[in-house]
Design a protein around this nucleic acid. Structure first.
Lengths: 138, 138
DNA sequence: CGGAATCCGCTTTGATACTG
DNA sequence: CAGTATCAAAGCGGATTCCG
């Protein structure tokens, strides 16, 4: 118990403080927590990151693999991820040209946590589903 | 290698399969992973959960504490969280009436993972910010 | 092949006003 | 106090078309 070597404190405390600080500015200094949640919360980022975690892939390969995504949203998503330094974009000047996307170390480190969350989701699925049914029914 | 006792496999593999399966149905059978990501990705759920992790709180207390949230969105958010069984709602028939919201064990278990993600966000903040600056500048 | 640009509908959100 | 109802505004995302 109480194994607070260093950073432990209360993680939740730390996060709340972080959120509060940015809220005080009227939300103009973006909170990093909300920021990453915004990204991972959008419809496609996580799936793109997940796909890339198996190795580099090309644009159209991703487009085919990720069922339901439009060309536009893949472009937008990849650009945002590249901007944040979560993926890198490499252009091969062949004919026809090809573009390859790769996860950066930073992106890999993010995936770890997302996987934890996703794992929770899968395990909690049955219970949540039951809760909803009970709520809607009663 | 290939230590597939039971669940181990590759967590990412498992998640991808989960996503794929729901995609095949045209997204009609909702993927639990996307489902939880949708919830945590919305603007307020995480903050509400985080606040409640310190103990039960009343509606207007939350409304004051969570800077920027509107009455309407707090209502909507709490209702969704209650439906999923992440928080419970308890009404005290006093005058004036008061309502108290509490995290369920399921909600607590979710917080753990969210905290991990939030912690990553805080530590990665500087690098991401630098990446964006470099991207926008160059 | 890998995008960029435009248009456009739908959902989400915020303000405001009203209620038990 | 703790909501509900309504409306308008904003944003996201899809379809389509064009370009290097």
């Amino acid at each position: 118990m109480a194994s607070d070597l260093q950073v432990t404190a209360d993680p939740v405390e730390t996060i709340l403080r972080e959120i509060d600080q940015s809220a005080e500015t009227g939300g103009k200094s973006p909170c990093p927590v909300r920021d990453v949640l915004d990204r991972t919360g959008d419809k496609w980022s996580v799936q793109v990151l997940l796909r890339l975690s198996k190795g580099p892939e090309r644009f159209n390969a991703l487009l085919r693999t990720i069922a339901g995504i439009s060309q536009r949203m893949l472009t937008v998503t990849l650009k945002a991820l590249e901007r944040d330094g979560l993926v890198t974009r490499k252009v091969f000047e062949t004919r026809p040209p090809s573009v390859e996307y790769t996860l950066t170390p930073l992106g890999v480190s993010l995936i770890q946590h997302l996987a934890g969350l996703a794992d929770w989701a899968i395990r909690a699925e049955a219970q949540i589903s039951a809760n909803r049914k009970a709520y809607d029914g009663g």
